[in-house]
Every structure is written in structure tokens, then in C-alpha cells.
Design a binder for these strands. Structure first.
Length: 653
DNA sequence: GCAATGAGCGTC
DNA sequence: ACGCTCATTGCT
């Protein structure tokens, strides 16, 4: 019996109450609301479906979390207005993941669901085949034998269906897409699903090629597909037609059926940080998913982040690295050229290219039969202050934040705002500071003049090349845009040392090494050469020369622990108008280890300020909880100027 | 003393 | 953006 003759609705006979998460962006409404399921919607109102409900008078979208027998609400419930589609887009796994991610980042569940579930495209729902999926055969994974002993044993564990967490540093010139395809196929052969997230489209294309060669049921997801195709592929994943899902950032939420393995490649790339609220990060979300679902996790890259090091140190993940012997047999010859070595440039051609002799000679030799990669700085890095004498970054005495130089007056701390008139370098005692000068960008034209007759290609912001052929050419690229070269580059010149290392960012050293290693890994195996223009006394330079990302990650994590930086502590930034910020900070009941730094003016915009909050790792959840609570109080009061909260922000100035 | 009106608030 | 509560107003 549906409606009676006056059009009144009657509740469904069983499980008449639907718990709905409504699509309103207000923090104090971040919880389920109970509605009655009218009997005519009984069949369609399944857990995970999209619905429309009347909420405070207006019709809003929502997701049906579950059907239950009774409500705790105590007052009269409204009816569901409509079931948009009976497609159960929100799986139980993603529903609880969205809750966990929201709690972790002091955001709302609906914000996470907006990132996790693509907009509906009605036609796609009927066009996706309901086909079944056949697990592939177990592939050969001999490529992992080089990572003795943990590589093969990790793959063996996965093949046996056991769950295992690992941090993997790929050898230089490693065919990492092939290695990831093998891991994926091993897990898929056990009947489980796989999610692999890479930073950008070029990585995705290479990985797709490698995976599709080994098995069927592979699908790629990326934001640029267009709404219909995007939803169609996503539904293939949700319905279990595709079980190996590859993609960029948003794929971290892919609702793969029966997940067995989550992989993030090059986890230090800032493309892995979602720029929309609540600003989740791929590595952290996949770690949450692996933890909650009992699936395996693989964090891979040429370099290693301090966060990945923490996973190893805490015992949560094993490390997969090659022995020094194996490394020696494949590592390129890396030399560094410091500032002081520039005087030696005598060759007029090298002088015109503004290259040190070693770099010039390495390029000239390689150009006989192969392309040469030249990594140059990207424009627009913010210079920070460093010691004039030893070039240690200049840090605030109170909170160890980075110092900056205003147009007039004394240097000041970008974190807590304290002015530092009497700087003295803790390392060498010097009192002099220098702004870290960004080296002039060497243009492709200058290099072309130094090597007449050699074609010059550029890859960067305007046009990113996917690959270059295996013949002599100068390939000038900004970091992250380096084209893949079939057969490898004969030489890789890293000219952006000071720009990368001088960034006003606590991750500058780690980021420089990551970018250098990612570029240097494109070198020809065996006799390829790498030249880095940076002072050999710096830790990232030493780590590159020795090809030792593990040593650097340990050093980096130890330094950050010493200074009280993430990931040794948990931080949050809170941005907003001075009034809003002060109101929020006043009411904030911080956990016991909590500190507030600032607020300081945010950039050029004098209207906004930023405060930095710092707690111990153990109190990270508590920090997120008090911030979410404070935000809820403000939205409940209908405060007009809201504040922006970011946990583990990428850009801690 | 009490209905009529309106602002404020929660939102099932 | 609806409908509820509660305070204020104005009339008997």
C-alpha cells in the first residue's frame, strides 16, 4: 500500500528509518539525520544510495547510510523526498573511511564524500556492463629479487594473501611501473582489488601500460576525463567489473571491491595533497584504508619522505631497499659542483652556457649518442634567510620557524612573528644573514649556443613532454616535468640546487633530494652521469651523491624531531580574519602538549592572519577534535567570517 | 491578563 | 527557507 487517498505517506513496514548524511557544508550539522522511508521508496532506498530530503525547509542532497528499525531522535521524523538513484554509490568501506578522514583532518564527512564520489551521470548507470572479473595468473616477480631479501618476501606474502605494509625505495633507472604492475597482479591473482595512486598523468600512462600488459580488469581514473566517462569508469570499480584501479590523487577514495593492496608512488610529491577541504593526503588516507580494511600498503619512490621513515621506525611498515652492493652495480656516477668550483670555468663554450666544466664535459660526452636532461629552477620560489657563512637556514630562537626579511627593519619569524634583531648562527656563530639568491635561469638559448647543432627541447609549465627519443638532444625541464627517455639520458645536469634548497619550506632539503633523484633516475643504466650544482657539504647533496635516500630520511626525521616539526609532531594551520581567529583561539581547549604560534599576517593580504598549532603526535586526534568542535560552535552561531583549518599542511611557511 | 506580531534559531 | 519558540507590544 503506497499512498492513501489523501496523498499521505506511510512508513515502510520494515526498517522504516533511514540515516542520512545531508549535503550542507556546516560543521555543526556533520552527523546523520533520521528520516522515514515512505513505503513507495522502500525498494529503492538502499544503503549507499543518493537521496533528496527536506532539511530545514529546503530540498538538499544526501547519502543514505543505513536503514534501521527505530530512531533515537524522539520527535516526529520527516519523510525522504526522493531516491535519486538506487545505485549504492557509497560503500560501507568508503562511508567509514570518509568519517575517519573527516575526523583526522577536522573536517566534515560530506566534504570527504564530495571528493570520494563523482557526480552522477544517469546514462552511465545503464551503460556499465555487469560483467564478472577473472583474477589474472600469478606473474613473475623476478624484478623484486634485486631488493633482497625483503622484496621477494613481500611479494610472497602478498601472493599467499597475507597483509603486509612496506616502504620501498626504487633503484636508479628502475622500471618502477613494471614493478608496481607485478605487485598489482600478484594481489589481483588472489582475487583481491588494488588501488595505485601516482602524482600525474604521465606516470599514470606509463603505469597503465605496464599493468594492462599483465592483466585485464585494469581501469584508470583521473579528474580530466569528463563527467560521463569519469562516472562510467568509477561505476566499473564500484560494481567490481574493474579490480585494479590506477589514478591520480582522487583515486585514493576509489571504492574497489574487496581491497587487498593500496599503493602510493612518490609520496613526497605535493600533488598527493588534495587542495580542497579537508585537505587530505594520499599516503595518509591509504594508510588509514589499509589499517581499517586489513589490506596491504606499499609506499614507493626513488626518495623517501620523513613520513615514510616514521612508518618504518614505528614498526608499522617494513622497508624494501637494495643492498649497497646491488646499488653500486647500477647507480649512476653522481658528482656535485659547489659555488667555489665555478672559478675553474675556462672553456669559452662552457662559460657562455654558464656551466661548470664538469657539467659541460659530461653533457658533451653524452651528446655523442644520447639525450641530456637539464633540470632548471622553476620561477617564483620564495627566498628564505640563511647564515652568510655556513648557509644553514636561519631559524627563530623561540619556535624554530624560518626567518624572513621585511622591506624595512629586522628579520622576523614567519611562524610566530617575533622579530630577530640579534641573529647568531647556532652552527657557526656568524652574525650575518644572506637572502638565498635564486640563480639566474639558464635559458634553452644559452645552452643551444654552447652546443651548436644539437636540438634543444623544453618541458615545463607551458608544455610538458611525456617522452623524448633516444638521440642527441638537450632537454631542458623544470622539476617534475622531466620527460621519460627510452634507453635513458646519457647525462643529467641538476642546475637548480640553490633554488630548491633555498625554499622557505621545512621540506626544502627533502624536496630537493626527491626531485633530483626522480630526475637522476631517468639516466641511462650503467654509464650514465649525473652532475648536481650545489654545495657538497649539504645533506641532500651527499645523499644524492651516495644515492642514499634512507640515510637522508633518517637524518631528516631526526632533525625534525629535534626541532619539533612534522611528522615528529602534529601541526595545524588556522587562517582567517584577526577577529575570527582570536575568537576561535580563545575558546580552543587544546590538549596538554598544545602550543599556539602566532598569529602572523598571511602573505600580502593584510586582512588575513594565520596561527600555527602544534601538539605531540599522540594528541593529533585530540587536536583535530577540538578544532572541529570550535568550528562547529562558529557555524552554529552563523558567524559570517569562517576560518580555514588545515591539519598537516603542506605549506608550513 | 492575554492575543497578536516578529525576530531568532534549529534544522530529523 | 520553513516552522517552531519566545519576547515584545498593544489592547481590554
Amino acid at each position: 500500500m503506497a499512498n492513501n487517498r489523501r496523498g499521505e505517506r506511510t512508513p515502510a513496514p520494515v526498517l522504516p528509518v533511514a540515516r542520512i548524511v545531508v549535503d550542507v557544508p556546516l560543521a555543526h550539522l556533520d552527523r546523520p539525520f533520521d528520516y522515514l522511508v515512505p513505503s513507495e521508496l522502500d525498494a529503492d532506498a538502499v544503503p549507499g544510495c543518493r537521496v533528496r530530503v527536506r532539511f530545514a525547509g529546503q530540498l538538499v542532497d544526501g547519502f543514505l547510510l543505513e536503514r534501521v528499525e527505530t530512531s533515537e531522535y524522539g520527535k516526529k521524523l520527516a519523510y525522504l523526498e526522493r531516491v535519486v538513484s538506487p545505485e549504492p554509490v557509497l560503500s560501507p568501506e568508503i562511508a567509514s573511511l570518509a568519517r575517519a578522514v573527516a575526523d583526522r583532518y577536522a573536517g566534515g564527512m560530506i566534504d570527504v564524500l564530495r571528493l570520494a564520489i563523482p557526480p552522477r551521470h544517469a546514462r552511465a548507470e545503464s551503460s556499465v556492463p555487469d560483467g564478472s572479473w577473472e583474477p589474472p595468473p600469478v606473474p613473475s616477480f623476478d624484478g623484486w629479487l634485486r631488493y633482497h631479501p625483503r622484496g621477494a618476501s613481500y611479494l610472497e606474502a602478498l601472493r599467499a594473501g597475507r597483509s603486509a605494509h612496506a616502504v620501498w625505495q626504487a633503484l636508479p633507472a628502475e622500471d618502477w611501473p613494471a614493478r608496481l604492475a607485478e605487485v598489482a597482479a600478484v594481489v589481483a591473482s588472489t582475487g583481491k582489488g588494488v588501488v595505485i595512486v601516482v602524482p600525474d598523468h604521465r606516470d599514470l600512462a606509463r603505469l597503465d601500460g605496464a599493468c594492462s600488459a599483465l592483466m585485464s580488469g585494469v581501469v584508470t581514473l583521473s579528474a580530466d576525463l569528463g563527467p560521463a566517462e569519469r562516472y562510467r569508469r568509477w561505476l566499473m570499480v564500484r560494481r567490481g567489473v574493474a579490480r585494479v584501479v590506477l589514478g591520480t590523487r582522487g583515486t585514493m577514495f576509489a571504492p574497489v571491491v574487496s581491497p587487498g593492496l593500496f599503493v602510493v608512488w612518490d609520496d613526497g610529491d605535493d600533488l598527493h595533497s588534495e587542495p580542497r577541504a579537508p585537505y587530505p593526503n594520499v599516503r595518509d588516507v591509504l594508510a588509514l584504508r589499509a589499517h581499517a580494511s586489513g589490506a596491504s600498503l606499499l609506499v614507493g619512490g626513488f626518495a623517501r619522505t620523513a613520513e615514510a621513515q616514521l612508518l618504518v621506525d614505528s614498526g608499522w611498515a617494513h622497508e624494501i631497499v637494495a643492498s649497497r652492493e646491488t646499488l653500486r652495480s647500477v647507480a649512476p656516477r653522481v658528482v656535485s659542483v659547489g659555488d667555489s668550483d665555478w672559478q675553474e670555468v675556462k672553456d669559452p663554450a662552457a662559460r657562455s652556457a654558464r656551466l661548470p666544466s664538469i657539467a659541460f664535459e659530461a653533457a658533451r660526452a653524452a651528446l655523442a649518442d644520447s639525450p641530456v636532461l637539464i633540470q632548471v629552477p622553476r620561477r617564483g620560489y620564495v627566498p628564505a634567510l640563511a647564515c652568510q657563512q655556513c648557509r644553514q637556514p636561519a631559524r627563530c630562537r623561540r619556535c624554530a620557524g624560518p626567518l624572513a626579511m621585511p622591506d624595512t627593519g629586522s628579520p622576523y619569524c614567519r611562524w610566530c612573528g617575533v622579530s630577530e634583531a640579534g641573529f647568531r648562527c647556532p652552527a657557526c656563530g656568524s652574525r650575518r644573514l644572506r637572502g638565498q639568491v635564486i640563480g639566474a635561469r639558464r635559458t634553452a638559448e644559452e645552452l643551444g649556443r654552447a652546443f651548436p647543432g644539437v636540438p634543444v627541447r623544453t618541458s615545463g609549465a607551458e608544455e610538458v613532454l611525456a617522452s623524448v627519443p633516444s638521440k642527441p638532444a638537450l632537454v631542458v625541464s623544470t622539476p617534475g616535468a622531466e620527460p621519460f627517455a627510452v634507453g635513458g639520458y646519457g647525462a643529467v645536469l641538476l642546475l637548480d640546487g640553490w633554488a630548491l634548497l633555498g625554499r622557505a619550506d621545512l621540506r626544502a632539503g627533502e624536496e630537493a633530494l626527491r626531485r633530483w633523484m626522480t630526475a637522476a633516475a631517468l639516466v641511462r643504466p650503467g654509464n650514465g652521469r649525473v652532475v648536481v650544482i650545489a654545495d657538497s657539504s649539504l645533506a641532500p647533496v651527499q645523499a644524492l651523491v651516495r644515492w642514499d635516500p634512507v640515510w637522508h630520511a633518517r637524518t631528516e626525521l631526526a632533525a625534525r624531531t629535534e626541532l619539533g616539526f612534522p611528522p615528529a609532531v602534529r601541526m595545524a594551520t588556522v587562517d582567517g580574519s584577526p577577529e575570527a581567529l582570536n575568537a576561535l583561539l580563545d575558546e580552543l581547549r587544546l590538549p596538554s602538549t598544545g602550543e599556539i604560534l602566532g598569529p602572523v599576517p598571511l602573505g600580502e593580504d593584510e586582512q588575513k592572519e594565520r596561527a600555527l598549532l602544534r601538539v605531540s603526535r599522540a594528541e593529533g586526534r585530540a587536536l583535530a577534535a577540538v578544532l572541529a568542535e570550535a568550528q562547529a560552535v562558529r557555524t552554529a552561531r552563523k558567524e559570517p567570517d569562517l576560518v580555514r583549518i588545515k591539519l598537516d599542511p603542506v605549506e608550513v611557511l
